Computed example of a mutant assay.
Amino acid sequence: MGLVTEIVALPAAPLRGVMWVLDKVVRAAEREYYDPGPVQEALAALERERQEGGVDDEEFEQREQALMRRLEEIRAYQLGQAGPGGA
């Protein structure tokens, strides 16, 4: 029965290959998009910019809030990926 199944499924092999590649691309894109590192670096750079006087308090607050929302989104995604059992 295994040989017959392989022969019948043979025409779908290219599709399975494409789906495998797409899955790998999506996973890599998600890892990059949900990486907190760049957001944390942007927060540190924003703080340095404020200390150097390159940004006023109002602009700092707005940009900081946007970055913090992004970090919250990343953490929520990571918690969702961890599943109901936690980390």
Rank of each mutant, 00 (worst) to 15 (best):
residue 43 L to I: 06
residue 51 Q to P: 01
residue 3 L to T: 10
residue 57 D to K: 09
residue 29 A to G: 12
residue 85 G to K: 03
residue 6 E to F: 10
residue 87 A to Q: 08
residue 8 V to N: 03
residue 34 Y to R: 04
residue 37 G to L: 15
residue 79 L to N: 02
residue 16 R to S: 10
residue 85 G to C: 02
residue 31 R to K: 14
residue 58 E to M: 09
residue 68 M to R: 11
residue 77 Y to K: 10
residue 10 L to Q: 11
residue 31 R to V: 12
residue 83 G to F: 09
residue 11 P to M: 03
residue 76 A to K: 07
residue 72 E to G: 01
residue 41 E to Y: 10
residue 23 D to S: 14
residue 86 G to P: 00
residue 19 M to D: 09
residue 19 M to K: 09
residue 44 A to H: 06
residue 78 Q to M: 08
residue 86 G to N: 07
residue 59 E to C: 11
residue 24 K to R: 15
residue 82 A to K: 02
residue 65 Q to N: 14
residue 41 E to G: 11
residue 55 V to G: 06
residue 14 P to D: 02
residue 48 R to K: 15
residue 87 A to P: 06
residue 70 R to A: 01
residue 64 E to Q: 12
residue 49 E to K: 14
residue 85 G to M: 11
residue 26 V to S: 08
residue 56 D to S: 15
residue 9 A to K: 06
residue 80 G to D: 05
residue 18 V to I: 06
residue 39 V to P: 02
residue 20 W to G: 03
residue 63 R to C: 10
residue 31 R to M: 12
residue 11 P to E: 06
residue 1 M to K: 04
residue 38 P to M: 15
residue 19 M to F: 04
residue 14 P to R: 04
residue 27 R to C: 09
residue 70 R to E: 06
residue 52 E to Y: 13
residue 59 E to Y: 09
residue 52 E to H: 15
residue 55 V to W: 04
residue 64 E to C: 03
residue 79 L to P: 00
residue 18 V to N: 00
residue 13 A to G: 05
residue 58 E to W: 10
residue 83 G to I: 06
residue 2 G to S: 03
residue 21 V to Q: 07
residue 62 Q to C: 11
residue 8 V to D: 03
residue 81 Q to I: 01
residue 62 Q to E: 15
residue 31 R to H: 12
residue 85 G to E: 07
residue 71 L to A: 01
residue 83 G to P: 02
residue 39 V to G: 00
residue 5 T to V: 12
residue 29 A to I: 14
residue 16 R to D: 10
residue 7 I to K: 08
residue 35 D to K: 03
residue 49 E to T: 15
residue 48 R to I: 11
residue 83 G to N: 09
residue 58 E to T: 12
residue 28 A to M: 14
residue 72 E to K: 07
residue 79 L to C: 01
residue 86 G to M: 08
residue 24 K to L: 11
residue 70 R to G: 01
residue 38 P to H: 15
residue 63 R to F: 10
residue 51 Q to R: 15
residue 32 E to A: 12
residue 73 E to K: 07
residue 38 P to E: 12
residue 70 R to F: 00
residue 58 E to D: 14
residue 4 V to H: 05
residue 34 Y to D: 03
residue 1 M to L: 10
residue 85 G to A: 07
residue 17 G to L: 07
residue 61 E to A: 14
residue 70 R to L: 03
residue 47 E to C: 07
residue 70 R to N: 00
residue 47 E to A: 13
residue 22 L to N: 05
residue 79 L to Q: 08
residue 86 G to Q: 07
residue 60 F to R: 04
residue 73 E to D: 13
residue 71 L to M: 09
residue 24 K to T: 02
residue 32 E to W: 12
residue 60 F to Q: 04
residue 73 E to G: 05
residue 59 E to V: 14
residue 86 G to A: 05
residue 68 M to D: 11
residue 66 A to G: 10
residue 14 P to T: 00
residue 5 T to G: 03
residue 79 L to F: 05
residue 76 A to G: 06
residue 28 A to S: 13
residue 46 L to H: 04
residue 80 G to C: 05
residue 47 E to G: 04
residue 3 L to F: 08
residue 72 E to N: 09
residue 74 I to W: 02
residue 14 P to H: 06
residue 44 A to E: 11
residue 49 E to P: 06
